[in-house]
Design a protein around this nucleic acid. Structure first.
Lengths: 124, 124
DNA sequence: TGTATATTTGAGCATATACTCAGATATGGG
DNA sequence: CCCATATCTGAGTATATGCTCAAATATACA
């Protein structure tokens, strides 16, 4: 009889069973705040789509306009515009206008570094 | 008249307009292969959910059993099991059994490093 | 063998996501 | 002012996602 017994604890008004209470308590303490967690998962979610990933990998090498990004990723201009707005809302890209053309570029250098380190890891 | 004119190129049998043809061609060349892209976005997608992110951040500090992870993330055992299966399919976690209890732990050390570096970045 | 606990599984469902399509804006040049 | 080009926008839609619920397994122990 080496296995631990279940403990039942109250949590948010509900009863929850737990095997290693100390472990859960410790993990709870170390968990980032709700905002940080949301920011973090939001960032990953943005990268978790093949189209957006291709866009961001391309922008890592320099700014591009909407229709170029659309051509690169085999999507419509409209779909591209929707995706760009999303990345803009997440503060991952910015744009600058030159005549009728809008050039998008990476807003956050962290993103480029993150992509780079992931590429490194996946190549091993 | 500084802005470039649009070029229309054929691509996959369709006509697509492009402003900076060389730029798109170069980006296409640098884009990772379809498999690598899928693996990469799949990894990010896995991290792009608050529950899974909390699970993985916790597992970074050591193995945990299903019901502990459920308690930690305020989800049901069943939902936790579904999430764990997903992470297992992606080869991000492994499990070992000890009696009735299954302990899950990180399979890929890259993931821990990736999470760590993102936490660093976000704290700036 | 029978019961309890830990976990898994599959179906069903509500929401989120990513696209298309039609029409709106914005800019530049006759 | 009018037209062409580049981009944006909102509604609608099809699929993906993450959960719940009930029932199935797996292991331990009496």
């Amino acid at each position: 009889m080496t296995a631990k017994m279940t403990t039942v604890v109250e949590q948010d008004g509900c009863l929850v069973k737990v095997v290693h209470l100390e472990r859960v308590r410790r993990a709870r303490k170390r968990t980032p705040s709700a905002e940080r967690l949301a920011r973090m998962s939001g960032l990953y979610q943005a990268l978790g789509d093949p189209t957006r990933l291709r866009m961001l990998l391309a922008l890592k090498d320099g700014e591009m306009c909407v229709c170029d990004l659309a051509a690169l990723t085999d999507t419509s201009d409209s779909a591209m515009s929707h995706q760009l707005r999303r990345l803009k809302d997440l503060a991952l890209v910015k744009s600058r206008r030159e005549g009728q053309i809008l050039y998008y570029f990476l807003d956050d250098h962290h993103v480029a570094e993150l992509l780079e380190s992931t590429l490194q890891h996946l190549s091993h």
